[in-house]
Design a protein around this nucleic acid. Structure first.
Lengths: 124, 124
DNA sequence: CCGTATCCTAAAAGATACTG
DNA sequence: CAGTATCTTTTAGGATACGG
């Protein structure tokens, strides 16, 4: 019904998206690239090409897709400077800045878990 | 080379998995079902059928797959009771319990973000 | 420089039937 | 009860070429 999803990521299913705030949150920042992009913006604005160059392996298509989606969801702010050649930069919104301490903790947890697993598995 | 990945989820790419603790962490708990399952175990042990019944929409295959993977990664503990009919229960490991406060915050953030978005988008 | 448009692949998830 | 085994579908993500 209505509009077909054209090219967005992280849909998962509507069922839990509306029921569960955690599923909802994970969808906002899930997928392969989102947090990676947000991290790069942690220290301030970056332009498209700077992001692309800092995130090894990402294609321009993916970068655009993720940025557009996050813009739509109020996670990043996109600013176009009317000049030639064009200059566009991206920055974190306020609400996503509240996420920073959370992903820091997640990162620490990841580090700890990785160490734990490594000491556990002697063999493959 | 070596062993083929048979049926596991959340592989993403090795590149960031080994470089970035955040990507690593998100992979551990990412995907459609993992956090949903872990949440249910927050209050204590549950058996397979209890989990299945509490998570609407999940198939037995998916539940098994996710549980097995999380067991392998030390996120859940599986206990088989030798009796007929069989009884198997699952519980959180210590390291994943350290994640609980983090996902609580994420949940709160999700709630807040959802409210924000709702008040923003008057139209579709 | 900052993207979009197409086409394509791989991986995650679903349906369904069956088993110790 | 607690799963496996197959098979199919869906969707996230990738390759590449082109455009304002």
């Amino acid at each position: 019904m209505g509009k077909k999803k054209e090219n967005s990521t992280n849909s998962i299913n509507a069922q839990y998206l509306t029921e569960c705030d955690l599923t909802y949150a994970v969808c906002k920042i899930g997928g392969r690239w989102k947090l990676l992009i947000l991290c790069k913006l942690e220290d301030g604005k970056l332009r498209f090409s700077e992001l692309r160059d800092r995130i090894s392996g990402i294609t321009e298509r993916m970068l655009t897709l993720q940025l557009r989606e996050m813009e739509k969801e109020g996670l990043v702010k996109r600013t176009v400077h009317a000049q030639v050649p064009p200059r566009v930069d991206y920055e974190l919104t306020e609400i996503v800045q509240e996420l920073i301490p959370i992903w820091k903790q997640l990162e620490k947890w990841g580090h700890k878990h990785r160490k734990m697993i490594q000491s556990t598995e002697v063999d493959d």
